[in-house]
Design a protein around this nucleic acid. Structure first.
Lengths: 188, 188, 188, 188
DNA sequence: TATGAATGAGCGTTCATTCAT
DNA sequence: AATGAATGAACGCTCATTCAT
């Protein structure tokens, strides 16, 4: 049974990988058949793990969210809170570029990530607060607009296939806007 | 024949209007039949004007782009170039929120506006240049990252239904990042 | 438009015919594709007329019911009420044999004919009452058991492909049971 | 190996029971998975005993037929052959009502019982002959029409959920038709 | 031997597109 | 020129059956 489980788990992973790939390529039009073919399994195998197409999409979103939350958790104890904050922002956007269309496709499908499940929101909030205390980010920036900026960058990066140069230059503007004006005191 | 032309033109406009409406309401799932019904014509009539669904979408995008370019043209001679620039940015984003699903739907459909046709790009570039000359925008911001920021804001505004408050606060950060650091000299 | 209607009507009839045929052959397992093929139309054409498979089945039942009611109406003024009554019973059963599996298939599908819509029930009741008044049928036989006998004969005739001989001999028994015992007075 | 056999036999019985239950509840739509779950075995175990779904259905029919034949055997030595005959007829129909959907489902599935295997036919023929000899049933009624009447009553009882009152009144007509006309001599 | 994960043909249904009217 | 009926490929999903464990 443990061996069976191993098979099933491997298939589940293969399906999730294939779904990400196909979703990235075909957007929302991705069909279950196509995903099954790329995964190298029958469509029935997908449906054994995920009762509907939407459930599969949900699983992908949750998968990504969990990974992003994990990364945020790691950075939450970094020495330089400002650097950690901006690095996290950059990494997420860069990641989105690779997995292009994904978040966006999912969002259009109505399976909106709402810019993150509670745990990821909490993780980001920690990074933000620490960065603000360290004086690396303006104190009057709230979570809502931060998530709006993050989401916007991700969406655009995916849509337009931002290359590294463009990403760097564009985020530079955003980061400049996030940094305290000279003279603003850190919370220390 | 002139009469015919008038008929055809009226039909074309009716179809485009209906398509925008239906697309806004149903997103990508909009069907040609639904559009035809809303337009009050038969599906065949749509196909007379637009050979494929994609062509219809393209036409909508171009339509919108032309209107945006027109607005940019008007602002190009405004007295305060900085205000004109930021107003244009804000207006486009606000507009996207209203017509939500549209740009995004089109983008997902692969009919990407590429952040604008030459027309609109030129119009925006004029606004940018004038704002930079007036010292209202940093001189080292290029068209590419400006369009990236604009597109990002539009996409996110649509996806997440930014309300006015969120839009204002989020754009405030972006605009802060776009403004020259104190001490930077205007090009005048 | 009248011409179009003619086309549509012809197709509707073709679909109904094909559906009866295929249902008779394959029972409930009949697929829409098969019906479409037999009808010589695309599946979409069926769906234009009948929004679901169940609606198609319903239409067939109603079609048959209407025809049966019509025949009952004709016999309602026959000179010999007893002969009319037994002829009607026989005819319906014989008809069921030809269209075998149909009623039964529909019944299983949950689209039960309930042994007849109101109008057919009324028509049969007229035949029964007239036959009873003429002393050809026992006065203590009610509509409920009459319909039960009729339905039973139809179902069995379909299931087991009664040939004419078997039908005659079997109905002879039923008819004997329906006739008044000697000495029972007619209502005249 | 004897132990194995016991296991297999128990499984076979469990599957047959489950199949009857599920078939009665879900009609033809019953799935092998559902049957397996109710039986508490894996689907593979069903396939070990019954090579196809149809074979399983066949086995159920044979199972029922055997039980009916057994009952007929018991009644074959009853004191009052006429009463035994009509009781058997009534019992079978009443039984069909309870197990509704079953016979009918099977029949629709094309696994027709042909109104009985040789076994049951023989048993019924004995009852009929004895009843005819006793003068309780007309001598000119043959097996073929008797089975036709029996099958018809069963089918209709299932389809339309005959309650006891309707069953009694309907069978009364049939039984009246089966009884000898006054004056017909018994075969004694 | 028994299990249930995997398979894929097939189902009901939709909809972009064509074409007879 | 305009209509909308017809088409059929493609979709999401189910389930009888097979086979690795």
């Amino acid at each position: 049974m443990a061996m069976m489980r191993a098979d099933a788990r491997r298939n589940r992973a293969r399906v999730l990988d294939a779904a990400e790939t196909v979703l990235a390529r075909d957007g929302l039009a991705a069909s279950m058949r196509e995903i099954a073919e790329v995964a190298g399994v029958g469509v029935g195998t997908i449906y054994r793990q995920f009762p509907t197409k939407e459930a599969l999409y949900q699983a992908i979103v949750e998968d990504r969210m969990r990974r992003l939350a994990d990364r945020a958790g790691e950075l939450a104890t970094a020495e330089d809170p400002g650097a950690a904050f901006f690095e996290y922002f950059t990494t997420i956007v860069a990641d989105s570029t690779m997995k292009k269309v994904l978040v966006d496709a999912l969002a259009v499908a109505g399976i909106d990530a709402k810019a993150g499940s509670p745990d990821i929101k909490g993780a980001i909030e920690t990074l933000l607060t620490r960065a603000q205390r360290a004086g690396a980010v303006r104190g009057d920036v709230g979570m809502e607009e931060l998530l709006a900026l993050l989401s916007a960058a991700c969406l655009a990066a995916q849509h337009h296939h931002w290359d590294e140069g463009l990403r760097t230059r564009t985020l530079a503007v955003v980061f400049d806007g996030l940094r305290p004006a000279r003279g603003e005191a850190a919370h220390v």
